[in-house]
Write a protein that binds this DNA or RNA. Structure first.
Ligand code: SF4
Ligand code: SF4
Lengths: 147, 147
DNA sequence: TTGAAGAGCATGAGATTAGTGCTAAATTAG
DNA sequence: CTAATTTAGCACTAATCTCATGCTCTTCAA
């Protein structure tokens, strides 16, 4: 239904929160208190982000999570993929396969549209999300599909 | 999960099929035979498209569906909205509301990203989908978010 | 040693979607 | 008029996915 999951959004909110204080580790409890998100679920999301290498977890007192990537260089698509898996607007898009692939008249066009959507996420960075002006920077050049 | 539903895709395939022969009405049976889609479901999808005013249904022998809109002027987003409802990449986007709205640090940026994604669908037309070169035409100008 | 915190795994409840069944209404052909 | 064709409308089941939570184990600092 062309919609981000809660997990992805919680993850983005958490990453954005961490982007501010990257000096020390911040606990799930503190993040959750600030973002009004179910803490237990937020913990699960952060675990996944840690597995994906986007944040670093530290146990024990004074433990928590710390941002690893640089906000200016971290595409939102990366975060989404870590939390939701590969982004496939349509089955055939981005390396995926579809049973209708042979003989689907819109396949080519579909792939292109799906690619453009993925581009939006790949060209917006975490810092863009915070500056509330994502993709203002790169603005892709005019693109024509290779026929 | 940032993905189009089957219904939307079936609808787009059907619309693309109808785009070719817009002179007469084509039955669900014939469309289904050509597209290898569960006919019963395809019928449901086409009914929704008819309700949405995108196609016109005619009953009886020689009945079927006929494209109403002009492929060059019909945005894909329109088709998707008719079949899936309003496009909300995030809850707060595009007029929607979210419980975290107050105090969400990424809300502004999120809305903008969601808007860009919606733009991709709104700027690609049905004929673009067929030509396998959607959005090659308009290529939006550089945009900066009003802060 | 103790308490704070993440890591890992599992599970239940809820929402959404895919797909099907059935009946009624309209329309055309004979 | 009758029969066949085809859409219109509604309901329903099964599968899938997401949200959310519970419990245990490990790590680590004080
Ligand atoms: S566009 Fe065609 S090939 Fe691609 S996922 Fe949709 S149906 Fe399959
Ligand atoms: S960005 Fe913030 S306000 Fe918008 S939907 Fe996500 S949580 Fe809600």
């Amino acid at each position: 239904m062309l919609r981000l999951t809660r997990r992805a959004e919680y993850g983005l909110m958490a990453m954005a929160f961490l982007a501010g204080r990257s000096e020390s580790h911040i606990s799930v409890r503190e993040i959750g208190n600030n973002l009004a998100i179910p803490k237990r679920l937020l913990a699960e999301v952060l675990k996944d982000l840690a597995r994906g290498g986007l944040v670093e977890g530290a146990r024990g007192p004074n433990g928590g999570y710390r941002l690893l990537a640089e906000p200016e260089l971290l595409p939102l698509g990366r975060v989404v993929e870590v939390l939701e898996g590969p982004i496939h607007v349509a089955d055939c898009a981005d390396g995926g396969s579809c049973e209708h692939e042979s003989g689907c008249a819109i396949q080519h066009g579909m792939r292109f549209v799906a690619g453009r959507i993925k581009q939006v996420l790949d060209q917006s960075t975490l810092s863009d999300l915070l500056e509330s002006a994502p993709a203002a920077a790169p603005t892709p050049p005019p693109q024509r599909m290779p026929v």
